[in-house]
Structure formats: structure tokens, C-alpha cells
Design a binder for these strands. Sequence first.
DNA 1: TCCATTGTTCATTTTTACTTGAACTGCACC
DNA 2: GGTGCAGTTCAAGTAAAAATGAACAATGGA
Lengths: 154, 154
Amino acid sequence: MAFFAEIVQLFGIPKSVGQIYGLLYASSEPLGLTAIVELLEISKGSASQGLQLLRSLGAINEAEAKDGTARGVAYEAELSLRQLVTGILQERLAPLASAGAQRLKRLKDLAAQAPENTAFYLDRTKQLENWRKRFTTVTPLLTALLGPSKKKSR
Amino acid sequence: MAFFAEIVQLFGIPKSVGQIYGLLYASSEPLGLTAIVELLEISKGSASQGLQLLRSLGAINEAEAKDGTARGVAYEAELSLRQLVTGILQERLAPLASAGAQRLKRLKDLAAQAPENTAFYLDRTKQLENWRKRFTTVTPLLTALLGPSKKKSR
DNA sequence: TCCATTGTTCATTTTTACTTGAACTGCACC
DNA sequence: GGTGCAGTTCAAGTAAAAATGAACAATGGA
């Protein structure tokens, strides 16, 4: 759990969320909110928000609790590396990339009107454009590389 | 600058560091610490630490200031996407990966000795091992994809 | 040699982000 | 319809991270 907590922090995701994922990862059966609160000794609020984030990232899945007593929803950890990575990419990077595209347009105009160094500014905006393009081409490649997650049919 | 500030925050890098990089990116000539402090209106301390981090990431390079008056060191932004990405990977992810490898060993032992669910735990540790492997194989591929930064010889 | 400038370090303050806990909703079962 | 559990939301508190600024090297000119 500590391991996951550290990893996710690299991506600006709160530690507690990493802990929750780690707990689910290490649990042989799906856990519900209440179980998580008890095992991690965190507040209901934290756990609820953490689960929301993990859901939005596609890092956890609903699952049938094994004991019939299941009142609420139970979750288990998503194990596909591809899914995890694409989830983060989509939720975090993509918004920035599209917002960046708009800004880029405005920048281009500004650069063209610059009182001096116009050539330089145009050059830099071109470079930014280039980065953006590479990002959009490399991303799908990356997820494809991580893709073949189903080694065994199972 | 705001753009870079947002991007770097995704990787857990302080906003001000992104600003500094953005400033250097947008500057047609290298800037020294003093200039950065004045232009961004941040403290000397922040700027100094920010530059240290950027240096350690290989995101900036020393450069000759154009006006001969240059007393201290001046920096310019590293433009190679490959260099930027590998810098972040090396400084941030790599340490975790190697630390993770050690933990993994211990985990394996623990899993083997688990009073119950041994098979499950062994399975999960195997999975972690698998992730680590894929990480180490994909990383160089990724940087290679970003590699051909010298489109034109210049 | 001494002063001015550049740059670093670190204790303190400020800001940001996370967690908490209480109030609230909805549902299931009685 | 009422009671209790599962889950959400949000204002307030708390903890963690970053910025500040002052004290301290180091270096280069005069």
C-alpha cells in the first residue's frame, strides 16, 4: 500500500487514494466503502472521494461481494496496466492538451504581432505545435505497447 | 508560462519551477538568476531552488549571455522533448522503480509464508513483477519514439 | 584588499491541498 | 411509514508543500 501511495503521488494524486488502490490490490475479495474505512482508518468522506477518483480513472471495478450480505457496492482493483495508464492519460493529460491547443492559437497571433523578435516567437510557437503533435501521435502508440495485457486467456 | 506551470504540476513539480522554464522558453536570450527574480517577481530563494531542480532534470542548459556584462551564469530552456521526458523519468520514476524492486523481494517472501490465500498473494506479486518488467522495457522505447529531435540539421 | 554582485541555505511564514466530521439523501428491509 | 446502513457533499480544521527573506559563501573587479 505504501508503494502505491508513493507512485500515485508522482502524478499528483493524493496519497490516501493510492492506499485505497493498494488495499484493493492486496485484497483477495472485493471491498466496500465501510470495509475500507475500517481497514485504513480513514474517514468516510476521504474514502468516498477516493473511490470516486479511482472510478473516474477506471482504476477500480464494481464486483459482486462473495458473501451474500453485500448491501452496498464492492470494488476490486483494475489490474490491466494499459487501462490504468490510459485512465490517467485521459483524465489528466488530455484536458490540458486540448486547452493547450486553444491557447496555442492565441499565442500564434500574438507572436505574429510582436513588435520585435517576431521570427523567434513564431519559431517557438511552431515548436510547441510540434510537441503537441508528437504527443497526440505517441500516446496511442504507448497504450498499444502496454496493450497485450491478456497473455493468458483465463 | 501559465501553460508550463500547469503541465509540470501534473508531475508534482512546483508551479514556480514551471514558470521559470516557461520564461526561459519564451526568452530569446539566456537569463540569469537576477533577471528571473525580477521578471517573475519571485524571491531569490525560490528562483535558486527552481533552477537547481531544472538543472537536475536536464531541462535547462548553461549558455553564454549575449551582452558581455554577464557576471554569473545564464540559462536557456532545453527544447528536446526527448531530453525533457527522460530527465523526468530518470529523476522521478527510476528511483521508485529500483526501490520497488527491493520491496518486491520482501513481499515475495511474505506472500510465500502467508497463513492463507498464499496462491493469491503469489499471483499478485508475480503481477507486480510483470509490471516492473514492462516498465523497464517500455521506457527506452518511449524515449526512442520521442528521439528524433533533430529534424533539421541546423 | 575590499566592495559589489551572484548564488545558496535554511528557519519562518504563507499558501495550498488533504482530511475530517457532521448534515444530508436514498434505499432496503422490517 | 419508520429505522438503520451506504454513500455523498461540503464547510472547517489540519497537515504538507512551497515561497519568502535574511544570513551566509564565493567570485570577480576596482
